[in-house]
């Protein structure tokens, strides 16, 4: 980053914004501005070319058919892979997380090629949908407080050797593999099944994305009282049986 402005790209809101995913963009944008950064946020529809010079890319969840359409258009576009080559940070949720992997099962029940940005492969579970509040411990290398989120998916995501579990669940399902992992990440690309939206419930993750994009170790403090109150409430909810 050469100047004080941050380029935030929200990928395909026309296809992947079913679960309040705009919230993740709003939280990153708000917290960057609170630190005095200028932010240019670009919402890129699926008939537009993805810019390759963004600093942070956000990809949301979506229904099965839009997920397939998004994967087709992202593969054809190629911009997201180039952006990652340029050092961009990517944060993805649910359907978006699956698209970043090598492969997932599409709405037609067939394997659909992903972008290969995360070393994961997703299949569809046969059990009931995973729905409800989740509490998990984020990988200790990231130095973040516990993860709280809301999951609503039927997917199962298996991690390859080049992806690290983003968190380990205490309550909830996460990746659905039964091994307690939730989400995946490598140095710059993150994936999670958590909605909520997840950055509204975990503003420290939004700050992590900002720190990675800005290449700094710390950010000025902001007032987190409402986030903290919400976190406490949702963590308590996740630990109580419904």
């Amino acid at each position: 980053m050469s100047d004080n402005s941050l380029r935030l790209v929200w990928v395909y809101p026309d296809l992947l914004s079913t679960y309040g995913d705009q919230g993740n963009a709003l939280v990153v944008e708000r917290r960057a501005r609170q630190r005095g950064l200028e932010v240019s946020r670009v919402d890129v529809r699926s008939d537009q070319q993805l810019p390759t010079s963004g600093d942070i890319y956000l990809i949301g969840g979506g229904e099965d058919r839009p997920q397939r359409l998004a994967a087709e258009r992202l593969r054809r576009d190629g911009g997201l892979n180039r952006a990652v080559d340029n050092g961009a940070i990517v944060f993805s949720v649910c359907a978006g997380y699956q698209i970043l992997g090598h492969e997932f099962v599409n709405d037609l029940g067939e394997p659909e090629q992903g972008l290969g940005l995360l070393d994961v492969v997703s299949t569809r579970g046969h059990a009931e949908r995973c729905v409800g509040d989740v509490l998990a411990d984020i990988d200790s290398r990231l130095g973040l407080p516990p993860l709280t989120g809301f999951e609503n998916h039927q997917g199962i995501t298996h991690l390859g050797p080049h992806a690290r579990p983003f968190a380990r669940v205490r309550f909830g399902n996460g990746n659905g593999t039964g091994d307690g992992t939730e989400g995946a990440y490598n140095d710059t690309v993150f994936g999670t099944y958590m909605h909520g939206p997840v950055l509204a419930r975990n503003p420290q993750i939004a700050d992590l994305l900002l720190k990675l994009a800005l290449d700094v170790n710390a950010l000025p403090r902001v007032d987190d009282q409402w986030y903290e109150a919400l976190r406490a409430e949702r963590i308590a909810a996740a630990t109580q049986p419904a």
């Binding site: 309040g20 705009q22 809301f150």
Partner: peptide, 9 residues
């Protein structure tokens, strides 16, 4: 519905 994420829409 037990999901509140729609508030962000």
């Amino acid at each position: 519905g037990t999901d509140t994420s729609w508030l962000w829409d």
